[in-house]
Amino acid sequence: MATTTPSENWFKRMSRSSKIPPVYIFLIVVFLFTGLMDLIYSDGQMYTNPNIMLNIIVRSVALGIVAVGQTLVLIGASIDLSVAYTISITAVMSSYIMQGNNSNVPVALLGVFAIGIVIGLANGLVITKLRVNPFIATLGVGLVVKGIINATFSNYTGSVPKEFEWFGYGTLGPIPVSIIILLLVVTIGWFILARTKFGAHLYGVGGNSEVARLSGVRTDRVLIGAHVLCSVTAVLSGIFLVSLMRSGAPWVGPNGVYDLNSIATAVIGGTALSGGKGGVWGTLAGVLIFGVLATAFNQLGINPYMKNILQGVIIILAVASYTARSKKEAA
């Protein structure tokens, strides 16, 4: 496919050579359509008010950070269902250790990152060494983490110091810090996948683990690494959420459905559940679609249960928008 026939229109050629995932078209369509609805049925602020545009991105930050990690794991043909509880344990532990005191912040950060790395290692080791299916392994590890959280905390615990809230509420010039963090994480994720040996190996392992192993890739280490990175992004998400909420609560992860939503956004962005295919930029678009929907539903004042229904429909349509023309059978 290296040579393009002249009959192909320039748009197709452009979009292929620039490697923009097709999901961005769906994102634009969703934005234009919901904006139009907003214009007709509400005050039309989605088109005109830049703050609402920023708000769309700010809403997406927590999900976006963890979705980047989930993308890495999915590319390795694995899955991580424990991220919601990793987020919860980060939120409660960091605010519990900080207790509103600035001097405790380094300890808290070290502590939660250590916890995240342990959870990631546990996921990776159970999958690679005990040969447990990733779905069950991370479900089990998630249950264990959930048990530990609920045995220790039952409500808002501790608080974060005022300065720490900068992550959630601060701005650098006109741009909120949270957006910069999100873009930073996505860029790092892109760099790991596209520019490092680890990333190349990860695609190999996800595409065909046996072939990767036979060509000298230490497949187990690559998968464990991906799971540790995923848990670390979950920790980052948790830290961001706690700085937003000012105090950690054990239900923050499961209530946000970060496990299934992060998987959904990654797949919407074109990452294959079967592994070996995908990237973080598509995931970012998937996350933004969720953000646009949340904002639009708010603007239009849609019934919360109707929101659920519409979100489900749009997830399916978003993925169908690029899979429908595929000739391969899905399972």
Partner: peptide, 22 residues
């Protein structure tokens, strides 16, 4: 539509649950 069943049924989960509560 060739949507992987994980995503299809995840969407359906939201739809059915939303419909029940609605």
């Amino acid at each position: 539509l060739k949507v992987p069943s994980f995503i299809t049924t995840l969407g359906m989960m939201m739809i059915v649950r939303g419909a029940a509560l609605y």
